[in-house]
């Protein structure tokens, strides 16, 4: 059995394929999370300021995406865009490169759309949790509103948001596995291909599970360390 393992993973190179898949998973997760956060911050600000109409629109987006399965969002984005992307690519003569890059791109967009919805809630909660007294103190010092925002509200809110962002990231990295159903070559897909060809699904799916576990465990440790760093000098409360 252990001999089989060596042949499968090393001599036939499936271990390497899984590792390559894991890097794609990590890349999609990171890019998606980053794009999600970049979009989520201004949307959370809109929501926090309770701008009419816009904040309702942000709310309904976040409720919709958080309420439906990630798989459905991925189907919508993938099937919904494939036609015009292909038309666009053919028009500009990039047919081949579009076929290659397309699942990756849509994967990132889908993951970003999902993680963005959760990040909005995290940032909104963090902004609302900034103590009113601090803002009043800033006002009494006659700080202009943008100084108050950048020097008082934002640093505190970001620190408060860190715990929630950790949860979103854990969810996001696990959600990347869903993109495999539309054919992106990430960890899950590599495992499925390896399982299909070598006819040993148990080994490869367990290996994929192990790699996911390592990814989540390592990032969990990193996050807790960052959180501890950011909370230095603040009483634990």
């Amino acid at each position: 059995m252990s001999f089989d393992l060596w042949v499968l993973l090393v001599e036939q190179g499936w271990g390497l394929a899984l590792l390559r898949g894991a890097t794609v998973t990590l890349a999609v997760g990171l890019l998606g999370m980053l794009a999600g956060i970049i979009v989520a911050v201004p949307l959370a600000l809109l929501r926090w300021r309770r701008l009419p109409i816009l904040s309702q629109a942000v709310d309904s987006y976040s409720i919709l995406v958080r309420g439906v399965p990630g798989l459905l969002v991925i189907y919508l984005l993938f099937f919904g865009s494939i036609e015009w992307v292909q038309r666009l690519a053919t028009a500009f003569g990039y047919q081949n490169s579009a076929d290659d890059a397309y699942p990756f791109l849509i994967g990132v967009v889908a993951i970003a759309a999902i993680s963005c919805a959760y990040s909005i809630e995290v940032f909104r909660g963090a902004l609302e949790a900034v103590p009113v007294g601090l803002l009043e103190a800033a006002k009494s010092l006659a700080l202009p509103s943008y100084v108050t925002f950048f020097r008082v509200t934002l640093p505190i809110a970001l620190r408060l948001a860190l715990g929630g962002l950790n949860n979103v990231w854990q969810m996001t990295i696990k959600d990347t596995s869903l993109v495999s159903v539309v054919g992106m070559q990430e960890l899950m897909r590599s495992a499925a291909i390896a399982a299909g060809i070598t006819r040993s699904p148990l080994l490869f799916y367990c290996a994929a599970a192990g790699m996911f576990f390592v990814l989540t465990a390592v990032s969990q440790t990193l996050f807790s360390r960052t959180e501890r760093l950011c909370n230095r000098g603040f009483s634990r409360g």
Partner: peptide, 23 residues
């Protein structure tokens, strides 16, 4: 708990449905 919370549910389903049938 750590294992089931640290891996995607898709992997868990695949291990159960495709993986275990191998034994």
């Amino acid at each position: 708990c750590a294992v089931f919370r640290g891996t995607p549910m898709l992997v868990q389903i695949f291990v159960l449905y495709y993986g275990l049938g191998q034994l």
